[in-house]
Design a binder for these strands. Structure first.
Lengths: 129, 129
DNA sequence: GGCATGTGCTAACTTTTCTTGGCATGTGCA
DNA sequence: TGCACATGCCAAGAAAAGTTAGCACATGCC
C-alpha cells in the first residue's frame, strides 16, 4: 500500500501488515509522545539538522537526541550526515514514509504475532539467574 | 469513515481527523502495551466479562482492571454491567469501532492541535486558575 | 587565542507506568 | 454456614521513561 518502491531502506515501514505485534507496539509507543510527535511533524515539512530542530522546537539538544534515537530505532525517521560548505558536519533527519491503519481488526491481527507473555529478556524456564 | 451511525456513543472514536493531537497521543499510548493490545484483540473476537477475560489472558484481575480502565478512558472499549440469570453482576466489555490512520501527514495535522509545550497542569501563560 | 556553531556522551534525578498482594462486598448453592 | 465466583479499591515496591546539566571534540572566523 505504501508507495515505497522495491528498494526499501532498512528503516522503512510498510503497511501495518508488515509489522509484527512487537514492532507495532514499539512504533505506537514511540509516536505516543508530544515531543516526538512534534519532531515527526516538523520533519514531515522539511528535513533539518539536530541543532536547528532543537531550536525550532524549543528543547535542548540532549533531550532531542534521545527522542530522535527512539524515532530512528522505530524506523520512523532516518539520519544522514552531510558536511556543509564551511566544513561543519551536520546531521540531517528526515521522516520515512509510513502508513499504519489502526482498527480493532488490525490490532487483532497484530496480537497474533506478539511475543508470548513472559517470554521476554532472559527467558525463565531455565535458570538465567 | 467509521460506520458508526449518528447516535455515536460517548466513547466512540471516529476517524483520525476527529482526534485532537492530545487525544491521539493518549490513544497511541494506550495501545502501545502488549497487555492492552491483547485485551483489544480478545474483545474484538467476542465480548467478555472481567474475570473471564483475566483467565483468558492469564493475568490477575487487579492488573486487568487497570488496563481496562485505560482502554475505557481512551474510548477504545466500553463496559456494560449485566446481571446473569443466577443473580451475579457481570461487567462485560466490548471494543468500540475505531479507525486511525497513521502517516506523516496525519501526524503533522494532529501536531497542530497539540497542547503547546509547558502548557500542561499548572498553566502559566494565562491565568486559567 | 577566544568565541560561535556543529556533534556526541553519560551520570543522576524526577516522574510516570506497571504489577503484585491483600482485603472488602455481594449472590447462589450444597 | 462455608465455598465458589463476581466486583472493587488501595498501598507499595519495581521498572521504565523523560529531562537536565555538564563535559568533550571539531571547524570556521575575527
Amino acid at each position: 500500500m505504501t508507495t515505497s518502491p522495491p528498494g526499501n531502506g532498512p528503516g522503512d515501514l510498510g503497511d501495518l501488515g508488515d509489522l509484527s505485534g512487537d514492532e507495532l507496539v514499539r512504533v505506537l509507543a514511540t509516536l505516543a509522545n508530544p515531543h516526538r510527535l512534534r519532531v515527526v511533524a516538523a520533519l514531515a515539512r522539511e528535513r533539518m539538522y539536530v541543532s536547528e530542530l532543537a531550536r525550532a522546537l524549543g528543547i535542548s539538544r540532549a533531550l532531542l537526541q534521545v527522542h530522535l534515537r527512539k524515532l530512528e530505532a522505530a524506523g520512523l525517521v532516518t539520519a544522514r550526515v552531510e558536511v556543509s560548505q564551511d566544513g561543519k558536519a551536520m546531521k540531517f533527519y528526515e521522516v520515512n514514509r509510513f502508513a499504519i491503519e489502526l482498527t480493532p481488526e488490525a490490532v487483532e491481527a497484530a496480537e497474533r504475532t506478539l511475543t508470548p507473555p513472559g517470554d521476554g529478556p532472559g527467558g525463565e524456564t531455565k535458570g538465567s539467574k
